[in-house]
Design a binder for these strands. Structure first.
Lengths: 247, 247
DNA sequence: ATAATAGTGTCTGTAAGACATTATATA
DNA sequence: TATATAATGTCTTACAGACACTATTAT
């Protein structure tokens, strides 16, 4: 027990790692950063980036460090949160490894440099990533991360973490559409996010696109939570109805 | 890294425990199960129940086992979910201990038996528990657990886990009032929960109270999520307004 | 009758969904 | 001009908050 801990024994000892589900939007698609394993087990298979937690660092610090090693970004610009911990005794065939999974959302992240262990790292559309067999229990982790990300968009302002500043309301709407996988009404979406307090900070600038009226540019506001939430339920019902009508 | 793990080294090794925030409603108050530590460090201080994860069990199994050891209940009747993982390198002064915290919600749990390590276990109102200094980082854990529980009541049917079956709508409303800490309109609450699909399963029975009209009895329905959610925001705003008016 | 809680009904304000209309750019 | 996207406005529906009113028990 935490309370007694008379003697340090093998019981309860495990290696601690952090694994990162790093999501970004590239080419109008939601993509996740995956590495190709260079060593057994699961050699040659895709896996989430991650690594050991060092003796001197907190779990959050370990996640930030791994994030920096993989994407050369510091955590100040993006959304990073603990997702869940996975500790099945046989999730790693070699020894017991308990991994704390983190979810990171970032804007237009760069093509990753070659990993420190000469592992190829690259972006993969999450749709593909979900159908592939990943190493360890990483398929489960990425599936739960995607659901968390979708849910975060409902109740928080996390969607703005996907947008490089400054951004338009159209950019922000595209984030929702790509992550949720169905279209939103542009008019109602605008009304919703502009009325939410401190979600968007207006600028006086505009962006001239290839075509169409120039769009006003915004920056991220101070709000973390979205009140009231922007729920998928109604829109999803409509999308399902549409999908049913097409069958 | 999880991916390489060339050599088993000290780096990343830690003891793994589970800690439980077990909440129930007793005497119209939200209470948490705490143990009094019989050994240093933090001897004599209050702490969350918990213990080592065994080599052969999953994290969820460890939480269920500890729950059974502390309350003599199996997990089938109550709500149990992983809360968060705490791994500050100095959270335990003796060695590195990473703990996976769980949140358990149960109906009218019994007075706990003496702990296996002769530790006194007992129920404490969460309000008091929050003001006391608990062992380790358990004050943080219980604070985050309370916020999670309050949030769960908004988006899920978890409130019913606090009610011994069968229960009345008044019982269920009292759960919300006790956990959230402010009163709800009985009429609107009834409309909300009865219209939510598969939240409540009606029975043909009624309960005759000391006074007042007998109340219809319900059992928990199959729904896990509450659509649309029952948000604190509006009600909280009213409560704050009321509190402000009283000052 | 009175008190107390259960349960129903109604009015109002807010916000979401659907969709029409106007504004401003490029080709 | 046509086309595309931005931005505003309008109508309707769903639902929450407030609260009046009825129902059914015990004292």
């Amino acid at each position: 027990m935490t309370q007694t801990l008379h003697t340090p024994r093998a019981t309860g000892q495990a290696a601690i790692t952090v694994d990162l589900v790093i999501l970004t939007i590239r080419g109008g698609e939601l993509q996740a950063l995956l590495i190709e394993r260079g060593n057994p087990p699961y050699r040659g298979q895709l896996a989430l980036p991650g690594g050991f937690v060092r003796d001197s660092e907190t779990l959050d610090q370990a996640a930030l460090r791994e994030l920096h090693e993989e994407t050369a970004l510091d955590g100040r610009q993006l959304h990073l949160e603990q997702l869940r911990t996975y500790g099945d005794p046989h999730r790693d065939p070699r020894q017991r490894v308990v991994t704390v999974a983190y979810l990171a959302l970032g804007p237009n992240l760069p093509v990753p440099t070659a990993g420190t262990d000469a592992q190829a790292a690259g972006w993969h559309p999450v749709g593909q990533a979900l159908t592939r067999v990943l190493a360890f229990d990483h398929s489960t982790i990425i599936r739960e991360a995607l659901e968390r990300a979708r849910s975060q968009l409902e109740y928080t302002t996390a969607a703005a973490a996907f947008c490089p500043e400054p951004f338009t309301i159209g950019d922000l709407r595209q984030v929702y559409e790509v992550v949720w996988g169905f279209p939103l009404d542009p008019s109602n979406f605008r009304r919703k996010v502009t009325r939410a307090e401190h979600f968007l900070r207006p600028t006086s600038e505009h962006r001239v696109a290839e075509t169409g009226r120039p769009a006003a540019l915004y920056r991220r506001g101070s709000a973390q939570l979205l009140h009231p939430p922007l729920l998928r339920a109604g829109a999803r019902a409509r999308a399902q109805f549409t999908a049913a009508a097409l069958r």
